[in-house]
Write a protein that binds this DNA or RNA. Structure first.
Length: 427
RNA sequence: GGAAGCGUGGCCGAGCGGUUUAAGGCACCGGUCUUGAAAACCGGCGACGUCGCAAGGCGUCCGUGAGUUCGAAUCUCACCGCUUCCGCCA
């Protein structure tokens, strides 16, 4: 959520910056709402003040044993107007909050301008794609020939966009997640977290998935009429650890790493990446989350992105780092780097990690604060990034480490997690 | 699922219809004392919103939401959560 004071005092500047990301702010609509709010709130509070002081008088008069009837009559006359005003103010504030809740974050000044993914800027490129002297297979052909990737059976069990893994490939998938968790906890200073996969609407609001993106989520209705949602990323439960909290300054920065499955309905992506496990309803991801003092968040973004890059480097997977442009960033983000891994079968780089600084946008929605040096509560800055998407990393390993005979070499750093297996071959 | 108890500021904890402006303590900040520190003593110290150039004023908040009342932390109802006991259970 944006700071409402900022909207009030610099409305045109906010609208201009939002326009760079393709968001049209209803400036006139806001002005009208704000004008009504101001008038109604002032009037309501005046009436409340009057009621309070008269009621207090009644208490004092009664204590002295004097007649309170005249004052009672006076305060009674306020009643109807006050109640009406309180009701309409509550309604107006609901509308006001709904208006603000769907405004995306402001892009940081360093974010390149652009309308869509074509405006993204390559920041760096690491590694050289291997030159194969045979016709490369994609992960679907490799995996099914190895007897470990089975999309048909997954479709029978659940439907499209699900994967069934078995044997050495399932183990490789697990090895990747373990390797990432171990690296981030032992080398990058993150604390391991196990978190719920189902969360309540307040948590989804806190990180910005609700109210605007409900169609991207799997919702689970409950018999008592409430709802839970399957997490689309561990960002949601982990960032919400600090919701409605004032964190002691000396505990900062908080750095968490969490491995979870992620569930996305992929509404609106019909026909996109239908082959293989690039775009699934369920996939595993190791997520990095940092909660930091505001003045540290931009350094933290560079570090966090570096932590995700380290995994790709240790796996020897060529990648490039993209600074997303204003038009391609997510709703809550002030700045995002995407890491794109080289996929030989697609002859291109594909997203495998997304690292963002949200500044105070999520913290304001969550009321996540710390006590600053002046002793006052101040909003935290929140960041997160994939470190990495496990399913896509599996795809990248299969394709980049394939051999002419259809076997796949196990990257050296994973062998300890694979019983020292060096190569996955058809059984 | 059944029964009982409990949800109060950063933390602990009192208050159970009107001088509550939420006691007291801890923590924290400032001061006195001290070579310095600790202790002791003195003082300060909630959040959010809103009006105002400012000084400051006003409003809301005692798990959440409705209600009773001129007035609710306090009374009523519903819900949520926690604790304990019983039942069931990986």
């Amino acid at each position: 959520m944006l700071d409402i004071q900022l909207l009030r005092t610099q409305l045109d500047a906010v609208a201009a910056r939002l326009a760079t990301r393709g968001t049209v702010l209803d400036v006139e609509g806001f002005k009208v709402l704000e004008e009504q709010r101001k008038q109604l709130q002032t009037r309501t509070q005046d009436l409340q003040a009057k009621r309070n002081s008269l009621s207090k008088q009644i208490g004092i008069l009664k204590g002295k044993g004097e007649d309170v009837a005249p004052v009672m009559a006076e305060v009674a006359s306020l009643g109807d107007q006050l109640k009406a005003d309180e009701d309409s103010l509550a309604q107006l504030l609901t509308r006001f909050n709904a208006f603000v809740a769907v405004i995306p974050n402001l892009p940081h000044a360093s974010v390149p301008l652009g309308d869509d993914e074509r405006g993204n800027v390559e920041v760096l490129r690491w590694g050289t794609p291997k030159a194969f002297d045979f016709a490369v297979k994609d992960h679907v052909d490799l995996g099914s020939a190895l007897g470990g990737l089975d999309f048909e059976t997954a479709t029978k069990i659940s439907g499209s966009r699900f994967t069934l893994m078995q044997g050495a490939i399932a183990r490789l998938h697990r090895a990747l997640a373990q390797f990432m968790l171990d690296t981030h906890t032992t080398e990058h200073g993150y604390r391991e977290v196990y978190a719920p996969y189902l969360v309540n609407p307040d948590s989804m609001f806190g990180t910005g998935q609700l109210p605007k993106f409900e169609e991207d989520l799997f919702m689970v209705p409950r018999s008592d009429g409430t709802k839970l949602y399957l997490i689309p990323t561990a960002e949601v439960p982990v960032t919400n650890i600090v919701r409605d909290q004032i964190v002691a300054a000396e505990r900062l920065p908080l750095k968490f790493v969490c491995h979870t499955p992620c569930f996305r309905s992929e509404a609106g992506s019909y026909g996109k990446d239908t082959r293989g496990m690039i775009r699934q309803h369920q996939f595993d991801k190791v997520e990095l989350v940092q909660l930091v003092r505001p003045e540290q968040s931009w350094d933290a973004l560079e570090q966090l992105t570096g932590h995700a890059e380290a995994i790709l480097q240790m796996l020897g997977l060529p990648y490039r780092k993209m600074a997303l442009c204003t038009g391609d960033m997510g709703f809550s983000s002030a700045k995002t780097y995407d890491l794109e891994v080289w996929l030989p079968a697609q002859n291109t780089y594909r997203e495998i990690s997304s690292c963002s600084n949200f500044e105070a946008f999520q913290a304001r929605r969550m009321q996540a604060r710390f006590r600053n040096d002046a002793g006052k509560p101040e909003l935290l800055h929140t960041l997160n990034g994939s470190g990495l998407a496990v399913g896509r990393t599996l795809v990248a390993v299969l394709e980049n480490y394939q051999n002419a005979d259809g076997s796949v070499t196990v990257p050296a750093v994973l062998r300890g997690y694979m019983g020292n297996l060096e190569r996955i071959s058809a059984a």
